[in-house]
Amino acid sequence: MSAFFTKLFPHPILTLALWGVWLLLNNTVGAGHIVLGLILAISIPFLTSGFWPEKNRIRAPFALLKYAGVVLWDILVANMAVAKLILGHNKDLRPGFFYVDLDIQTPIGISLLANTISLTPGTVSCDLTEDRSRLLVHALHIEDIPAAVKEIKERYEAPLNKIFTVC
């Protein structure tokens, strides 16, 4: 049963996401589109599963929800801060590059972390070293680099590391 299930739904999350996107695209919850969307959502991951060899398991869905909430809140706060910096006096800004040493291993974890860094307070992720061990980050205005690294690691990396695991 379980083997049959994994064969039919190689990526259950992708299936759900595709179904949701189909319904949103057509902007309807009519019965026809629910069935058609379900057919597409099942057949596309099934037919293309060869292209997605690695599987991602979400170990803690509630932690993911909490993380999404934290990130959304930070995006709002970050935008106020960045708007103030941009509209203020640009001569006083102290931009800088710094590296964040990564504990997180999974590709999806790293990409989510990089995306989060780009969307939150005054930082943009610029580059990942070849061995996936360090992330280069540019900050618009930074005074205390070790504190910023510590905040990124505690606020974003630790929860992401808990949520995603390698299978």
């Binding site: 960045v82 540019h138 618009l140």
Partner: peptide, 16 residues
């Protein structure tokens, strides 16, 4: 428009 170098300019469009 007004920030001085490319890496700083990157911040405006990506966030705001």
């Amino acid at each position: 428009y007004k920030l001085p170098d490319f890496f700083m300019r990157l911040h405006g469009p990506t966030k705001a």
